[in-house]
């Protein structure tokens, strides 16, 4: 797969948070121009993976290359130059709470370009129109619902027309209508602007509907990867359990813990 058409290339990536291993040697390729989805149970480190790609965390070993550059070896200046070409939608939205919706979307434009104010206005309104929130431009973030905040953050992430955009759980908190619009929108943005898209999500159906390629992560490893069709047809028991949302199977629902029965009977422990 390393045929030079990958925008992001991850090789043998290892990473741990204070001793707890999150990634134990994973390889991932994100193809240029495509929509790649990273899926996996809650807590497997999907958000962490995006932070590694964005250079906010450093790998313990292995390499993360974006557009041919080793992210962990970039100087600060180079890293910031790279980030100008990356858009990221945070799981929480992470809007700047002291700025209005309009100013939030205008923020990257004002920081990084010297466009005249009328042009910024037009650009912001175009992005807000795309996410259906042009009418909400004067609201403050505190007055938005969770789903609306996520959509404003999406408009902000695409404000600079980045080469790659990373969505962390874009669908959670969306009602069926905005969900449908959003799914279409993500695909359209990707195709119309020639971007590369990385989606992190556990909304299996929506994600499978727009993704060209899927990676399934679990317990620090890539469990399976392939196109949505391939996985549905040929996937392992694990894959089918995950994709179909079955409670029983090899995927654990619990965070690692001692046997529940043992812990309940343990004498003298106060917690």
């Amino acid at each position: 797969m390393a045929d030079g058409s990958s925008l992001v290339e991850i090789r043998g990536l290892r990473f741990a948070y204070s001793g707890r291993t999150i990634f134990d040697g994973i390889d991932i390729d994100i193809r240029r121009g495509g929509v790649t989805a990273i899926m996996g149970p809650s807590g497997t480190g999907k958000t962490t993976l995006l932070r590694l790609i964005g250079g906010q965390e450093q790998p313990a070993s292995g390499s993360v290359r974006v557009d041919g550059m080793e992210v962990s070896r970039l100087s600060r200046r180079q890293l910031y130059e790279l980030r100008k070409r990356m858009g990221m939608l945070f799981q929480s939205g992470a809007l700047l709470t002291d700025l209005s919706v309009f100013d939030n979307v205008a923020f990257p434009l004002r920081e990084h370009t010297r466009l005249p104010e009328e042009m910024i206005r037009d650009l912001v309104l175009i992005k807000l129109q795309a996410v259906g929130l042009r009418g909400a431009r004067d609201l403050m973030p505190a007055a938005l619902s969770g789903g609306m905040a996520r959509r404003v953050a999406l408009a902000r992430a695409i404000a600079l027309d980045p080469m790659v955009i990373m969505y962390d759980e874009p669908f959670s908190g969306q009602d069926p209508i905005s969900m449908g619009v959003l799914v279409k929108l993500i695909r359209e943005i990707n195709d119309a602007l020639g971007m590369t898209t990385i989606i992190v999500s556990h909304d299996v159906h929506e994600t499978a509907a727009i993704a060209d390629y899927l990676y399934l992560l679990s317990e620090g490893r890539v469990v399976e990867h392939g196109t949505p069709d391939e996985l549905q047809r040929a996937g392992s028991r694990w894959t089918r359990q995950f994709l179909n949302g079955l409670p029983d199977g090899p995927v654990p629902f619990h965070y690692p813990a001692p046997e529940f029965g043992v812990e309940l009977l343990e004498p003298g422990s106060s917690r």
Binding site: G54, Q56, Y80, E81, R83, K84, M86, M88, F90, S92, A94, L95, L96, T97, F107, P108, E111, H112, A153, R156
Partner: peptide, 17 residues
């Protein structure tokens, strides 16, 4: 609070220090 709500992180990702 800006840190706790990931506003600082999101700024870093927008290449704003």
């Amino acid at each position: 609070l800006m840190k706790a709500t990931e506003q600082l992180s999101s700024m870093e990702m927008m290449a704003v220090d």
